[in-house]
Design a protein around this nucleic acid. Structure first.
Lengths: 340, 340
DNA sequence: TTTAGCACTCACTTTCTTCGAGTGCTAACA
DNA sequence: TGTTAGCACTCGAAGAAAGTGAGTGCTAAA
């Protein structure tokens, strides 16, 4: 168990290191007002803290640097919740002031705010799709050969896809088809669209339209694209600002990792409700060994859960980040409340 | 005027430097098969070429490096059109094989290909919007309070915007409105929508629907967003691969420049039809002083013109780039042919 | 238990050296 | 007259040597 004094010293070391990115020496700790004992005492305590694994030296005569265990302890026990500055609060409030009614917009904007306020990289994961249901299908003919299929979901999400209309299909046939599809598919979850199309609708279409084969396959191609959950990333280039990423190779491999959207999405999904932190090695990817990932969940009205995340070096301003993400996720949840 | 031999030497220097990014010395030039004279002769010729401003030294005893004037001359007079490799040709062809029918898709994909094949950053500018006309409006009610307005243009572009439906407006009113709007606005250029709404439609709506004011302002907000031309950027992180961007500050300022989308769009627009190159100082932005920007135009069926561009260091593989962009812009033009 | 004092360590910086690729110039050669 | 061999010279890059200072651990005294 750590003594009061050790806690204090650990706190000072981590706070200082987060601020300066420089190893912290005993003398500079002794200078703090809150610290009443001498540098020699601090050295002794630091030796103990190091033995317990909370801090490390970069070389034998260097100051101390928090270890991952140290950060973990800091996050779990030492975090003093920080009051956000007025400016920060205002920025967020203003952003949510102009009533946004589309999920994408809200999320885009949130990602932007988050990365701007933090100088880290923000990643936002939309909610799972399986609850999303088809609201309406529309087909807008552009000309003789092509038309646009538009799909609207109950969440207000719009997808569209242009497709070729084979000459054999006339517009009345097309209209019929859309009517049938709408009457039968409204309310069907997107993920089940494919199945449903195959089992039920196929027959129905056959009886009502000529050239069902063609029409069917074209529509299918147009509508069954991928409805996979999207990742919204903001401030990708903020990574370059961090001194721990002076090394271009590291930047490159981190970028490569981030570009594996599916893996990242899985990672974000794997957090529990509320705020989570993954520090260094706790992250599954090699390129993220020097990074921390903070995730927070937000809720949609149907109790589905999405995730916002911040990616930065392990030396992160955890307390400010916690407050920010808390406020932001609350704003998001609030915004989405009663939407569908 | 340059002699044959000087041309050869200049060519070798630039080709070599483009390949290796290292200053080129007289000995390494003398080793080339095409070069039959000694390094001393080459040194004399190089002194002349330097005097004329085509090449430079990085320091008093270094090999030579092409100057911007050198690159300009190279691009204007020495460029041997390169046959693309089969792999490159196949990559492009395959990408365009699966019939894409949406502008965005084609452009996205093109930007992706271009940056992947080149390791530079690709930027694609859509065509001007003033020819784009409204094809159809649709309103899909989501629930009592909100609905989605969908706007389809003759180019197959789809925009949508959710908006609040005030309780006073019932769905039959909404429907009426949409009908009126559609009948009067079809074929109207997007840029004139605003004006038209004000002058003609406003009155019409008044006579046909109650609560016209409300409805009107809501729809307006929903539909008249910004239809500005979008920029599609691919391979932004490729910049990090180039040895001339080892310096993070340069990268940062270049990124900052690229993020000024309007400026970049203007820059792309300013090129003439066909392929253009801007080398170093020929670019208007400070951060692009060490960069070259190659632009090429593609055509839409209505003879509107869009631009694809490649951003890289002045030490660019110009000949390969020219061939690639030629092929790509042709593919794009071909794809768009007869679309609307 | 705390602290002053001191020897020691080691990254960083600066200075100096060495090395070699490359130059320009000169003189001889075809 | 144009070309080339030869040679002294330049200068960056890489490495070695020396100095600096922030930091440590240990010891002994308060």
């Amino acid at each position: 168990m750590l003594t009061e004094r050790q806690l204090l010293i650990l706190q000072v070391i981590i706070d200082d290191f987060i601020l300066t990115a420089q190893p912290v020496g005993s003398r500079s700790i002794a200078k703090k007002d809150a610290v009443t004992f001498s540098s020699a005492t601090i050295r002794n305590e630091m030796a103990d803290l190091e033995e317990m694994g909370y801090i490390e030296k970069t070389h034998s005569s260097s100051g101390r640097v928090p270890s991952e265990k140290g950060y973990r302890f800091y996050v779990d026990h030492l975090l003093a919740p920080l009051r956000l500055s007025n400016k920060e609060i205002m920025t967020i409030r203003e952003a949510f002031d102009d009533k946004m009614l589309e999920f994408e917009r809200v999320v885009q904007k949130s990602a932007g705010i988050l990365s701007d306020l933090t100088n880290y990289t923000s990643i936002i994961l939309g909610p799972e799709v399986f609850e999303t249901k088809l609201k309406q299908l529309q087909i807008v003919p552009l000309n003789d050969q092509s038309a646009i299929a538009i799909l609207v979901t109950n969440t207000g999400h719009v997808e569209h896809r242009a497709f070729n209309v084979p000459v054999e299909i006339n517009s009345s046939n097309l209209e019929k088809m859309v009517n049938i599809l709408n009457s039968r598919l409204q309310g069907v979850p997107l993920v089940k669209l494919h199945e449903k199309l195959h089992t039920e609708i196929s027959d129905l279409l056959k009886t009502h339209t000529d050239q069902h084969e063609q029409a069917f396959s074209y529509l299918q191609a147009a509508l069954l694209d991928d409805h996979s959950t999207k990742l919204y990333i903001g401030g990708k280039t903020n990574i370059l600002m961090q001194p721990e990423f002076r090394d271009l190779d590291k930047v490159r491999s981190l970028y490569a990792t981030i570009e594996q959207e599916n893996d990242i999405a899985d990672l974000l999904r794997s957090g529990e409700e509320g705020i989570n932190v993954r520090i260094g090695q706790e992250n599954p990817f090699d390129a993220m060994q020097n990074c921390s990932l903070i995730t927070a969940s937000y809720k949609l009205s149907n109790n589905q859960i999405g995730t916002i995340a911040l990616l930065g070096p392990t030396r992160m301003e955890y307390n400010r980040m916690f407050s920010l993400m808390n406020v932001l996720s609350k704003h998001m949840t609030e915004t989405f409340k009663g939407w569908y």
